[in-house]
Amino acid sequence: MIALLHRRARRWALNGAAAVGLGYILLPLVFVTWLAFFHQEIPSFPPEGYSLRWFAAILDQRKFVSGFSVGFQLAALAMVLGLALGVPAALCLARRNFRLRGPLANLLLMPIIVPGVVLGTAMYVFHVEVENGLDMDVIGTFYALVAGHIVIVIPWVVRLVTASLSGVDRATEEAAQNLGANPWITFWRITLPAIRPGIVAGALFAFVTSFGNLEMSLFLVGPGRTTLPIVILQYLEWKIDPTIAAVSVVQIVLIGTAMLITDRYVKLARVV
């Protein structure tokens, strides 16, 4: 009996500790959501009342709308091109054995390890050099920004696709080839369906990584082409109010929905 109570108590202590951790992670999101519904403009507690007017106020500020649309186009482009470059690379790294495999894998995963500010500064000076060398507009252009974002999404695509390839038994591919399928048919009929979850997850991670990137983008955006996280950062530097909280809530809801949808196709628990 006492032993049972002991075990119960331990169970509760463990769950309690876990709840503290989870609560900590979610706390800032809870409060920013709460603030978005405040009636008064000053973030003082307790709120004087509740209102939905701040959500309408978002649309009055052009910078939020434009930041969102620039970020969306950017993330979509970076995702597509990142997949085009990353999926074949992952196939090669997971399936072939060659001398340069290790260094190449490290090179492609490197953008995750290099800090955002270092990436940003390095790309900025690179753009300066290219602009001077080729005598064309590079600094602050949309395409320079896209190129930077492709670099940071490639590691996620390579990582997730490689991970899902390691779960595919090579024997099935070899069986297909023994039965007379050429490499292309083998890929199309056997490998691709097997790694589809990895590709979907890679695409999702690529999109959100690009959409949410702040540090690197700070150095690369040009006037009138700012992304949403930068708009939010620059707004928060001056003040915190329910309008910016409402913008945050919109972002939380959109990303949350995207993740719930993705979770139906791939179990996020397995790919992260």
Binding site: P28, L29, V32, L35, G212, L214, P229, I232, L233, L236, I240, I244, A245, S248, Q251, I252, I255
Partner: peptide, 8 residues
């Protein structure tokens, strides 16, 4: 969701 939103 991003660091700026959580900072908010």
């Amino acid at each position: 969701v991003g660091n700026a939103v959580r900072a908010a």
